[in-house]
Computed example of a mutant assay.
Amino acid sequence: MPRVISIKAALAAAGIVGAMLATPAAAEFPEKGMTLIVAYGAGGGTDTTARMLASDLEETIGQPVTVQNVTGGGGGNGWGAIAAAEPDGYTIGYINIPNMYSGYLNPDMGREESLESFTPLMNHVTDYCVWAVKPDSPFQSVNDVVEAAKEGRVTITAHGAGGDDDLAIQRIAKMNDLDMAVVHNQSTADSKSQVLGGHVQVLGANVSEVADQHASGELRVIGVMAPERSGFLPDVPTFQEQGIDQVWSVSRGIAGPTGRPPEIAEAIMTALEATITSDAHRQAAEQLSLAPEIVKGPEYMDFLKSTEQEIKGLMGW
């Protein structure tokens, strides 16, 4: 049976005053299906994570949750679609941090959205960055890539200027005075094809996107940008273990457009938290090499603002 959570139950669980329950339309939320916007193409880490969440959220609210891929603009088109949606609670989407910031912080991008364009709901997962190569690549370590880049240009994939992969590459390049040619793609699936086909030397991605292929031997991960070894890649040393002070990740969180009624936002957060903390969801996440990490409310907004400032400093925007 679906774990249906009405807004009335959500508000009661959240301790919201009874006066808010007076709106008949709100009390029955959701009365129809919801849309979950993803700013990247099918097959990548964000899309896979979103489809897992949508499936389990359907069980919680008793309504269909449809994933909609809105690609292009380095993710900006998708985030713009979230910001422009009706603030009625029926459209939510993933905001990828730090990727989202470049769209409006970078003056060359010219996007109008900012943090104030969204109602941040909660963080879902934190997925650390990795570098991976073909099994027969001469690169055996992160330092091999760094040394090769010092002698000549090394090609590496990423998802749009200002995305987590790109920012990680730029930070390492600046630290080591490297020349790296970044090849931007719409999805990790495209990036993997380029690396496996020998067209690009190094894959910039995230743990969840490569763990299975590393285990099968299709790809070889040479470093993880995490503070400690990943439980999903226990045989792969961190960048710090290899002498490169780099901890970098993408945070996939959920947000809606600004202006939605607070009681609707509370109901959605309650449903999301019930979904994400369920045993079924955590087991499904583990199968995808993901570890849910809930951060919500003011703490989530503080995280978003502090990360925004960090990216400003790194990029000089």
Rank of each mutant, 00 (worst) to 15 (best):
S6D: 09
K8Y: 04
L11A: 07
A13T: 04
A14R: 10
A19I: 07
M20R: 04
A26M: 09
E28V: 09
P30R: 05
T35N: 08
L36F: 15
G41T: 04
A42M: 14
G43W: 02
G43D: 02
L53G: 05
L53C: 06
D56L: 10
T60K: 06
P64I: 02
V65Q: 06
T71V: 15
G76L: 02
G80Q: 10
A83Y: 09
A84W: 10
A84K: 15
Y90R: 13
Y90E: 11
P98V: 07
M100H: 10
G103A: 13
L105E: 15
N106P: 04
N106Q: 13
M109V: 13
R111Q: 10
L115K: 07
E116L: 15
P120D: 07
P135N: 10
D136N: 14
N143I: 11
A149M: 13
E151N: 13
G152K: 15
G152C: 05
V154W: 01
A161G: 08
D166H: 13
I172N: 06
M175F: 12
M175T: 11
L178N: 06
V182H: 14
V183W: 08
V183S: 08
H184F: 07
S191E: 00
L196S: 00
A205S: 12
N206C: 03
A211M: 06
L219C: 05
R220I: 09
V224Y: 00
P234W: 01
G243E: 09
R252K: 12
A255P: 05
G259W: 14
A267R: 05
L272R: 09
T275H: 01
I276C: 02
R282G: 00
A284K: 07
Q287R: 11
S289H: 09
P292Y: 09
E299R: 13
E310R: 15
G313T: 09
L314M: 12
G316D: 11
